[in-house]
Design a protein around this nucleic acid. Structure first.
Lengths: 340, 340
DNA sequence: CGGCAATTCCAAAGCGCTTTGAGTTATTTT
DNA sequence: AAAATAACTCAAAGCGCTTTGGAATTGCCG
């Protein structure tokens, strides 16, 4: 069923039908109803390519998937995509995914950008200085960055206050009397990890404490790595009395390592982790319930989609800077320090 | 730079330029060279929507991402997508990703299928009886199923011989004298897990052994779950002397659990796991090196892309049934049974 | 050198939609 | 009642490409 045929059946012109369907004011409410009803009955759906050609919009937003980075990081990215997709689906906008090897990354961006395959891009997990931003700015492709990076090019970004979150969490641990706090972090090349590190150090510095290099570990945000780091850290003497952990996955590993070491979470070792709010991983349900800094990464995806749409609506990228506060939720995994 | 302008600069008609670029035989080699060179110089890229409208092809293949299933399964899926993308990129075909909640799944397929947003779909991880196949067959959308399912509708599929793989692996363990073999599997609702289970049971039955329910565990294919299952299984008395594991992730957990129990992998407990060949997870590098049944899931993605393209070329879906053999690679994690 | 096939190129007709610019009819205003 | 305004509707022109059906040119043979 095509627009033309639909119009014929209704005894209307294509113009009118198109306008009725797209909510233009020139069409009477009665006509609009009739058209909508007929469209439904004949199961009419506009041909996307035709629409895209006519409007000059691709009706799609691009996302690049690095296939040779450590894919175990993925749950975070996939959750972000889920949020993105939820919002975009409402406007019938597709996500075009481009799996790419890192070495060909800028080529991939170039390929996507030209040929107007997508109207905008969404980038995630930026490095501290991320070349992608300059590349895209230069190509003139609208994009939203989820996270922050150092770049001369003005651009739209959305980030959570990672520094504030870990600053706050560290302060809380200090208030409980902990002084030997270990940080289990993501790779420090990534901005969010660097920010968390900064928040952590800042809080320590405010109490006149220096962070000890041997109490800081960084790596892939997986259960296994969390286990290994925690195991190693618990082997230090004196050992840390609290862990600040960058992801729930790592925290699961840390919990296990603590138990394996014959210690009790929340009593012998306090733990605070960052919770990206995975639907299948509830900090409340751990034993003991895990204290977290919380911010839904899915919500960030949704908002990124919205911002991308605003960008397409003409909003100035330089006006889009959102920094989301992160809440600290204290549960059973944190407690006052005890004499070792 | 548009085709028209390019043609003008070259002093040729649009037709000729288009044909030269698309490799039609009617154009002389000299002209083709000239055109190609000019296209490169002016950085010409055809407008995809225009091409899609003209050819009637969407130039995209759809993939549905279930956002509320256990996303920790994702590394497998992402790796598959990577393979898919690698192949499709060569033909400038996009992957359109539709994140969807399970409850709305058939709606999602319907949405994608109509409006010709994609030319074909690729499905993964089918259930034993998967309704998606019937839905898509009914909608008339070409698709390739990665895995197998029970369905009356003839359809294209590509699968690895999971049953054969685990049959073979089990036989190998039996040959080494193991009789108490435990299976750590994925969810039995999924076909591949069911097939592995069948291969396992069949091999046992051939030696007159029955599989013991308490020696079979199934769940999400993560490190953590692998650890928990192995831990539990090692607590049984008499305990199993060998593990057959459905994924490398789970095997990592199992290794840890075995060590934690004070046992040695390959001597006290043999382990064979299925290896999907992740670039960042090499069974050779484990200690001891892990015996595996191996089949690259990325290669399966690549081949699925190829089959999807053939489908678009007019190949009969019913003629596409590929069952890939799986090799068993013996390394240090398997050894003869020892007196407990 | 005429005739035929092969080679090379072209103008123009879509593909299915949106959108412009104008026309038609109904409703107010003076 | 004429004029002005509002409310609808329409035909047609793109959007940028592919592809059809010829036309023009070249090469080869008798």
């Amino acid at each position: 069923m095509r627009l033309k045929e639909l119009a014929e059946r209704l005894g209307l012109s294509q113009t009118t039908v198109s306008r009725a369907l797209n909510g233009f004011p020139e069409v009477s409410e009665a006509t609009r109803q009739r058209v909508a009803e007929a469209a439904r009955r004949f199961n009419y759906r506009p041909h996307v390519s035709a629409r895209r050609l006519a409007t000059g919009r691709a009706g799609a937003i691009g996302a690049v998937l690095q296939t040779d980075r450590n894919l175990l990081l993925d749950p975070h990215y996939v959750e972000f995509l889920a949020g993105l997709g939820e919002r975009l689906a409402r406007d019938e906008i597709d996500i075009v995914l481009s799996p790419t090897r890192a070495e060909d990354e800028s080529g991939a961006y170039r390929r996507i950008a030209t040929g107007s395959r997508v109207d905008a891009l969404v980038l995630s997990s930026p490095l501290i200085e991320d070349g992608r931003v300059a590349t895209l700015a230069e190509l003139g492709v609208p994009f939203v960055l989820h996270g922050r990076t150092i770049s001369k090019s003005p651009h739209a970004w959305l980030d959570i206050d990672n520094e504030g979150a870990f600053h706050h969490a560290t302060k809380h641990l200090l208030d409980l009397g902990h002084t030997r706090i270990a940080l289990i972090n993501g790779s420090s090349r990534l901005t969010y990890a660097a920010h968390r590190d900064q928040g952590f150090r800042k809080a320590l510095a405010e109490r006149g404490l220096a962070s000890q290099p041997r109490f800081v570990a960084e790596g892939a945000m997986t259960d296994e790595v969390g286990y290994r780091f925690a195991e190693r850290l618990l082997g230090e003497r004196p050992r840390p009395t609290a862990f600040l952990v960058s992801s729930m996955m790592m925290a699961l590993g840390a919990y296990r390592a603590i138990r394996t070491a014959g210690l009790e979470v929340g009593r012998d070792v306090s733990v605070i982790a960052h919770d990206d709010v995975f639907p299948f991983l509830n900090p409340e349900r751990l034993a003991p319930p895990l204290s977290t800094t919380r911010s839904s990464i899915r919500a960030a995806g949704t908002r990124s989609a919205e911002l991308a749409l605003e960008l397409l609506g003409g909003r100035d990228p330089a006006s889009i800077h959102e920094l989301w506060p992160v809440e600290l939720i204290i549960r059973g995994s944190t407690g006052p320090v005890r004499a070792a």
